[in-house]
Design a protein around this nucleic acid. Sequence first.
DNA 1: TAGTGGTCTAGACCACGAG
DNA 2: TCGTGGTCTAGACCACTAA
Lengths: 243, 243
Amino acid sequence: MLLSSEKGSIPLYMQIKEMLVAKVSAGEWAPGSIIPSEIRLAQELNVSQGTVRKAISELVEANVLVRRQGKGTFVTNHDENRALFHFFHIYNNRGTKFMPECETLSCKKKHASRSDAASLEIPDRSEVVRIERIRKLEGTPTIAETITLPAAQFKELDQIPTDELPNMLYELYETRFGITIHSAEEQLRATRSSKRDAKLLGVEPGSPLLEIVRIAMTLDATPVEIRTSRCNTSRHCYRNTVF
Amino acid sequence: MLLSSEKGSIPLYMQIKEMLVAKVSAGEWAPGSIIPSEIRLAQELNVSQGTVRKAISELVEANVLVRRQGKGTFVTNHDENRALFHFFHIYNNRGTKFMPECETLSCKKKHASRSDAASLEIPDRSEVVRIERIRKLEGTPTIAETITLPAAQFKELDQIPTDELPNMLYELYETRFGITIHSAEEQLRATRSSKRDAKLLGVEPGSPLLEIVRIAMTLDATPVEIRTSRCNTSRHCYRNTVF
DNA sequence: TAGTGGTCTAGACCACGAG
DNA sequence: TCGTGGTCTAGACCACTAA
């Protein structure tokens, strides 16, 4: 790799950051694996350790890498805790969060609707995999979920028996399809429960549900999942901390 | 100030960070004012510039300070843009955000309910100021808001004529009461519109509204405002980006 | 004991803003 | 031109982990 240190060019640590992101993004460094030490990278790139350090620090901040003192620096991987911590925002009214249980109702191939296709940046009517499931919190069904994925990137996902689909799908995406969810954009609205959701969640049809539409993206900002969650918020709520 | 650099003690940059936070928190350095340069601070504290730099960097990350190259480092202040950018999350369905207009309905002293008192960490039944207002987005009334503040810290707020209360209250809190909102915790639920809100927002009574309960805090984590927003989400939504 | 990241230093030079 | 923050270096020593 070539770094340019011309006057007025992009700072070295930024260029190094881009390089590191590229390696992770391309899968050259897999999730969970160790990357070369700061000193090695500095030698290879002909810069000082401090410069590499700054690049790595920003990627640690962005949850791309994790440092472990005495061991090394690793590519972040999606264990259950990360998924729960970063991507699950439903708490009970006492302010605590539990790992949701999960029952998958169906997992089938469909053709993308216009809006799904637009969100996933794939051609109109192309194939998608659609998962329907319901999630229980502390024993009671609380969230009805519809998940839409581009079939091209999730080949044969619909062949997996529904009872083998795990609770935390992002781990599956990573281990089985090599797709790591890095960020997501969520839109929240209040809606009326459909008859179907009402039955699944044990509420009156038409009663208010919190609808969360999430578009999840990889490190290079490619959208790969649309997830619509309809939540009964009588005993739970969505929490967000703002700085 | 004394820094301890004993073996096994808290890192210097952490101690410096605490010191800087204390100065801002105590109002010794007011919002918007410049703080001593990195070099001056380093001299005064007998550390290298790099160490001060690391302390400041983390506070910039936390939105406590802002750097301006060539000018200096400043205490963050709450202009309209900061309030809109960090604390207002309602977008229209095309994904854009506008400065809301605002009509204040009332601003009166009350006695705190048990739950309000608990949230604000003040004695039961102590005095609070209650503001009721409605906010218009692109011309249509979209959000009904109830704001509760501890009267002890917002003396004579209820004496201000309602039509003089500004759109962005956080600026007022800062300039008039010396209280800077630094972070907030939001809880979102789907609720049914009350008759009163329905009339204010021009919707059917009982129709679903997105309820946002925000507890806003100062830099030292003291809760100072409870804000309940009930939003009509037919043409708007709450957005959140997750990493 | 060797190797990793974590803290800290002292000093160089660049880019920006104001006088 | 001067003072600010922004980048980068070279090297010291500490704290942690694993062999």
